[in-house]
Design a protein around this nucleic acid. Structure first.
Lengths: 116, 116
DNA sequence: ATCGTAAATCGCCGATCTACGATGAATATC
DNA sequence: GATATTCATCGTAGATCGGCGATTTACGAT
């Protein structure tokens, strides 16, 4: 019943705690953070680039990429010679805002929360 | 957490990513997000409070709290009648900053340097 | 037609997570 | 002492994750 309606910032209310948790789960693996940073560092790159950089098997990297794509943090363009992966910068910015909103609201103290 | 990422050849913070990933893993469960918000809403509260709020078994809640404590997001004062849990606001603020920095740096584009 | 490459998928395993009930320890209270 | 409360821990079952090799798919090139 703790549905905070008065979300201060632009962050949408609470129904997305599950959604935020899902995206954070996608981010909660060092290899995937590494992949994200690598993708962000280049315009777009293919699976093999990531494999070479990460010292993981190709199948493993493909799985990690899939996790990121499924979470909506990375966009996949399945072109034929080689697929192109690129970070979804809007999604990352939105997630950044959501996480900050969540964490900072926890920092704010017992006053700001509607939980009472 | 088995992390053998490949070459630490990159100068940027790398042990850091593992630490951030670990904290995000602690946050990547809806129940733990809920717990964090609940703790943030009160000065300090005990396990039983959370149990009543979350409709989970006491042992399960205790486990979730332990995850949050181990991740350094919640402080535990094991007093004897009842232990006190409270959010570590500094840690949350720091994590917020780290995550924002990470995500926004990914948003910045093929940046730093002559990447084209 | 055959080969090689890039990527996705499958099957498998060990490890970890989530949840629960049961048990045990420490402290009040009667 | 007996009892109740609160919490941590143990053992468990089932699900999911992380990793790999092997296979499949879809091209392009020879």
């Amino acid at each position: 019943m703790n549905i905070d309606l008065a979300s201060p910032d632009s962050a949408p209310p609470c129904g997305d705690r599950v959604a935020v948790a899902a995206k954070l789960a996608a981010l909660s693996h060092p290899a995937r953070i590494e992949i994200l940073l690598h993708l962000a560092g280049s315009e777009a790159c293919c699976c093999k680039d990531v494999v070479q950089r990460l010292d993981l098997a190709q199948s493993t990297v493909s799985q990690h990429l899939k996790v990121l794509v499924d979470a909506g943090l990375v966009r996949l363009t399945p072109e034929r010679p080689r697929s192109r992966y690129e970070v979804d910068r809007e999604a990352l910015a939105a997630l950044s805002g959501a996480v900050s909103g969540l964490l900072l609201s926890c920092c704010a103290g017992p006053h700001s929360g509607p939980a009472r």
